[in-house]
Design a protein around this nucleic acid. Structure first.
Lengths: 90, 90
DNA sequence: TGCATATTTAGATAAATATCTAAATATTTT
DNA sequence: AAAATATTTAGATATTTATCTAAATATGCA
């Protein structure tokens, strides 16, 4: 859960997820959407990967990133648990 | 949204929310649950308040904190939007 | 084989953050 | 009014983090 919250606590990374929601993209394509150096974007992608929010696969010289939303179910459950004052109404 | 993600990106603050889910507590009661100084807890509570995740009301010399989960609806929607690949299936 | 393109790794730096102790403020009690 | 209790504010410090440039590591192409 720590990795997940950490990954989401940055607007650039959240924007990357929004982009990947629409379509898979290479690291370079993603970097072109921001006024941030490619190494910085690479670092952000690494944190997203560590949180299991994105997958990557090598395609020739490119690395294609895709979103993985299954991990967000954990977050959904965490939130819903917090919203249920007790477990009396599950 | 920035304040919200920032507030949640700390395990102490998330634990505070879990405590407040069960019952309202004073700042001191909260602090007693952690091996962290009271000023540090006070700082965490301030960040939770800035994110609108908790409310506080003064009761004599005590300050009673309570959880506010309505702001979590924004987070829920943000997650659900991300999970819907397109808006074709709303 | 050698050059161009794509991405990551390394190392440096400035800003943000969690924590502490000491002091200030507010309230209650004696 | 003075002492005790509860909480926050101030100021300091060590760690984490986002960012950069330069260099290293793939891969593709001529």
């Amino acid at each position: 859960m720590n990795h997940l919250f950490k990954a989401l606590n940055d607007s650039t990374r959240r924007e990357i997820l929004s982009l990947l929601k629409e379509k898979d993209m290479s690291a370079g394509e993603i970097a072109n959407e921001f006024n941030i150096s490619k190494p910085s974007i690479s670092h952000h992608l690494e944190l997203l990967k560590r949180a299991d929010l994105v997958n990557s696969k090598k395609d020739g010289q490119f690395v294609i990133y895709s979103i993985n939303t299954t991990i967000l179910d954990d977050l959904l459950n965490w939130i819903l648990t917090l919203k249920n004052k007790t477990d009396e109404n599950p």
